[in-house]
């Protein structure tokens, strides 16, 4: 059997397990509720703006958003592009980028550690290469997280269309594009979570260590931002949202390559350590 088949079987089982577990279902429901709440909140803010600032024309709003996005991403072309995006979808995109690590840490902390705690992993390592098992675990987690975020985004597209904030074609095309951009970034977070989970045999320790690892990366990012040390900011996966959303192909390719490289690094490290360790 090829390693690809092994990985596929492990990932499929992981996906099934995640969506059947109480934890997976609760996180899916919370994500949907959170997404819907944000959409409704934004709609209320939009209504408030219209009521309180009747003189603000759509053109002026567009210009203000373009300006804000240009400042945020440091690129006028990107600013212009994002100014055309339905506001709700853009907000949900940023929420997804920033809250996905939390979702991943809660879903993935016992991904491997749970199997190692009571040596359940032994049933798998007899039948699959350890690297296939580890990649399958990562892939299963990533697919689960991607499915949850897609469901959340889809709910918001529907709300957006129903409320008449954007035509269906615009909402879906922008929605899909923004969701796809979250995928490489969540892949890196899943890689980190899988690595941490594979180090610990006690799930609660793995959870705390995952939180700690994510927090440390965020602190490194803040230090990099404060003192303009780009190399430090690149350690934080969310940094690459600006690359992946960019209209320039070279920036987009750089962001994608960085995410793939970081994912490969974390999953490779976890596979290597898992292959060498006693179970």
């Amino acid at each position: 059997m090829s390693p690809i088949s092994e990985t596929r079987f492990v990932a499929q089982r992981e996906l099934r397990k995640n969506f059947r577990s109480a934890k997976g279902i609760v996180l899916l429901v919370l994500s949907l509720l959170g997404g819907t709440a944000v959409t409704l909140l934004l709609a209320w803010v939009e209504q408030l703006k219209r009521d309180k600032m009747p003189d603000l024309t759509p053109e002026a709003m567009h210009a203000a958003r373009e300006d804000a996005m240009t400042r945020a991403f440091g690129d006028p072309a990107t600013g212009k592009l994002l100014a055309d995006t339905p506001e709700v979808l853009l907000l949900v995109f940023f929420i997804t980028i920033w809250l996905t690590p939390l979702l991943i840490s809660l879903l993935g902390f016992d991904n491997v550690s749970g199997d190692m705690q009571h040596k359940t992993v032994r049933y798998w390592t007899l039948r699959t290469r350890r690297s296939s098992y580890m990649i399958g675990k990562w892939l299963g987690l990533w697919t689960t997280v991607s499915a949850i975020t897609l469901t959340m985004h889809a709910v918001i597209w529907v709300v957006c269309i129903v409320r008449g904030e954007a035509p269906a074609a615009t909402a879906i095309s922008w929605g899909l594009r923004l969701w796809v951009i979250t995928l490489p970034i969540s892949a890196v977070w899943c890689g980190i979570s899988t690595l941490v989970s594979s180090i610990f045999k006690t799930p609660i320790l793995a959870l705390l260590a995952t939180f700690a690892a994510f927090f440390v990366l965020w602190v490194i990012f803040l230090i990099g931002l404060r003192w303009n040390i780009d190399a430090l900011t690149y350690a934080y996966p969310n940094t690459f949202d600006g690359f992946l959303i960019n209209k320039r192909i070279d920036r987009w390719m750089t962001g994608l390559a960085a995410c793939i490289g970081m994912t490969a690094l974390y999953v490779g490290a976890s596979s290597f350590m898992f292959t060498k360790r006693d179970l």
Binding site: M1, F9, R13, K17, R20, S21, D115, H118, K119, T120, V121, R122, Y123, T125, L126, R127, T128, R129, R130
Partner: peptide, 30 residues
């Protein structure tokens, strides 16, 4: 593993079965 796949079966002493899996689907997955 690839060379020994299906050629070796092991009953480990203290490895718990995956609690959320049904017996049938666990065995089919194996």
């Amino acid at each position: 593993v690839d060379e020994l796949r299906s050629r070796i079966g092991v009953l480990p002493q203290d490895a718990l079965l995956p609690g959320n899996d049904k017996v049938g689907e666990f065995l089919v997955h194996m």
